[in-house]
């Protein structure tokens, strides 16, 4: 009995720790400005006024922060374009490489594996200047492509690592059968192997997307105008503007978080399996 009760108190503490910071910010995003100064935990007179700033694309509102808020829809579209491209590149390059590493014994596979592991440990700040100069010399600054390429390279090693572990759990007999039936190795990969491994592919795809959505350093360096700026970079403008009311910032924060949050809830099981498998696999 006591054990049960203490378990639930323990669980409650964990839930409070995990949700309270975000819950407060979400509550504030529905408050009129004066309620924040009264240090409320719950909006007395809930309003969507903070959010309407963000969808007022044509608006002339002179409120502090409105100029940033107005650009949000465009920035979210930029983030979507970049994230989807990063996801696709990860899935194609990643599954090809992981398949070879998991299935086809070849000389140099250990070297490649170490190369991938090594590139995963390179910090972004270490290569930011050469990357910036590289993108500048190819005229790619302020384009989606520059951000897509940088995000793909830093997510790819993790993708390959996880997929390799996942692929090794699929029984070999499946492809043997396909090969006996006359498939080429590539045919066996595309027709038999990939369909079976869809859950793993979905997991790494979502990973890559969420990682790209949240990345900041390269996106900050490479993009300058709303033509390419993703939403994290736009949101960081709030950190530079001192007078923006926190209610408005909170609404923006919720908008940025919404998509990754929904995705992680929808694919909860796959994500947890994927991260867990990265160590045990």
């Amino acid at each position: 009995m006591w054990r049960r009760a203490s378990l639930y108190i323990y669980a409650l503490a964990a839930v409070i720790y995990l949700t309270l910071p975000f819950a407060w910010v979400a509550a504030v995003s529905f408050m009129p400005e004066r309620e924040v100064t009264q240090q409320r935990w719950w909006p007395e007179e809930p309003t969507i006024g903070n959010y309407s700033l963000y969808f007022d694309v044509e608006g002339q509102s002179a409120d502090v922060g409105a100029a940033i808020a107005r650009q949000f829809p465009r920035a979210i579209i930029n983030s979507l374009i970049i994230g989807s491209a990063v996801m696709l590149l990860n899935l194609t390059c990643g599954s090809l490489a992981a398949y070879a590493l998991a299935r086809l014994p070849f000389r140099g596979n250990l070297l490649l594996l170490l190369f991938y592991l090594g590139s995963r440990s390179v910090p972004g700040v270490a290569i930011m200047i050469p990357m910036y100069l590289l993108m500048r010399s190819y005229g790619l600054l302020d384009t989606h492509l520059s951000v897509i390429l940088s995000h793909t390279t830093f997510t790819l090693p993790f993708t390959i690592w996880i997929l390799k572990g996942y692929f090794q759990t699929v029984p070999l007999d499946l492809e043997r059968a396909a090969r006996v039936d006359g498939c080429t190795p590539l045919g066996a990969l595309v027709r038999v192997f990939l369909p079976v491994t869809t859950p793993g592919l979905v997991a790494v795809g979502i990973f890559a997307f969420i990682a790209s959505w949240g990345e900041f350093l390269f996106a900050l360096l490479f993009t300058t105008t709303i033509a390419s700026r993703p939403v994290t970079v736009l949101a960081s403008d709030f950190a530079q503007e001192l007078q923006v009311p926190f209610t408005v910032i909170a609404a923006g924060g919720v908008l940025v978080i919404l998509l990754p949050l929904v995705l992680s809830f929808l694919f909860q099981r796959l994500i947890i399996q994927g991260i867990g498998g990265s160590v045990t696999g």
Partner: peptide, 14 residues
């Protein structure tokens, strides 16, 4: 998964 899904910049603003 809530804290995990929140981008670093937004976490900072929060």
């Amino acid at each position: 998964l809530i804290p995990w899904a929140i981008p670093g910049v937004v976490n900072g603003l929060m």
